[in-house]
Design a protein around this nucleic acid. Sequence first.
RNA 1: CGGGGCGUGGUGUCAACGGCUAGCACGAGUGAUUUGGGAUCAUUUAGACAGGGUUCGAAUCCCUGCGCCCCGACCA
Length: 411
Amino acid sequence: MKQSRLTTKTRKEAPKDEVSLNAQLLMRAGFVDKLTAGVYSFLPLGFRVLKKIENIIREEMVAVGGQEILMPTLHPKANWEQTGRWDTMDDLYKVEDASGRQFGLGPTHEEVVVPLMQKFANSYKDFPFAVFQIQNKFRMELRAKSGLMRGREFFMKDLYSFHLDEKDMDEYYEKVKAAYVRIFQRAGIGEKTHLTFASGGSFSKYSHEFQTVSGAGEDLIYICQKCSTAINKEIKEETPVCPECGGADFSEEKAIETGNIFKLKTKFSAPFGLEISDEKGEKKTVIMGCYGIGLNRMMGTVVELFSDEKGIVWPQSIAPFAVHLISLNQDEEAQRIYEQLQREGIEVLFDDRDARAGEKFADSDLIGIPWRVVVSGKTISAGGVEVKKRSEEKAEVMSVEELLRKMKIGK
RNA sequence: CGGGGCGUGGUGUCAACGGCUAGCACGAGUGAUUUGGGAUCAUUUAGACAGGGUUCGAAUCCCUGCGCCCCGACCA
């Protein structure tokens, strides 16, 4: 992508009211735009990051047998009345059409996925299975806040699993738990993300949250000093002992809830009468699990964790581009290198603008692409390009071939 | 939903006593100079959230609405 054609520009200053770091940086760098509180557009750079995150999640969901589907956002009132949540879920957006028919804008999809799967899964031989989607959700937050962290419309991956018995669900639950660990690792926030025990509601002893330690978090978690598993506030009050290893020594941290997994059991299958005859002909209510990750929040979390005074420092796995190629009045040579890198399958943002060096460097630091590659008269006479990683201070001149080798190792 | 703060060109502004042509910077346009860390000069562009009120006169005071941010509550 040539930067001269990029539809967004960076700003020197953040919009005056934005206090949260992720909102300031993402808006200054042109990744997102706020339409209204808690509702964001993803611009070319931000959309690329979103897609990277999406693909990591998708790969891991497919790896645990999830089948991707796409369900509607517009839900008939009747589905929500069936579970009693039409009146009790206070963050459900309700809309009405011209004829007075009422709909909910999906904040989650149990009310749709259960009757949907009921149409197809009618023999015990069809079980178990899991479906997921990556789609925008609506929640009527009383107070949207903290940039991408708590929005009214946001992208979420929601996986739903269906089982004949609890044991099978428990086993699958553990598989998804492991997949979540991999997702956060791959996105670069694994080290700071703690599996956190949370209350399971009335159907299960525990559910689990994935909490990423950050000062920007709105939750408090208690990290076991022995095994680094965490417990949330509720659990801490009930049973101040680590459910994982029995440890009782905790450190309190602010954290962002980046994902959660939950054993629904029959909470939603029962109201819809999702029952199956097992091999003995006995009717059984289907057992379910659900598993969510907020993509916007994950993107915001990464920015909260990885930035410096100059801008964002993207982890390579979800950066909008791998290389930021900067031409300092050497457009012809830079163009050749641009094409060469692209032939190698490398995603390059090519700063071909007619701008001064300082502006290009400042923009590059702000946007935060992992590898900065400068082409100038100086580097050409030194026999190559200047390579600097966004996360490091030192820059060195090397040939393009050397850069390619380094990038392959660096991954 | 309770509380607080705020609303001036595209952006920013602890710029402006109730009073002269609403200032400055950034951005954008044009021309020139410059070319490794947001350069310089000239020139142009563009603004009071909306509605009402007080007043000879309102960006400034008052009311209503709308919007944004923050704290709290809420967040299966």
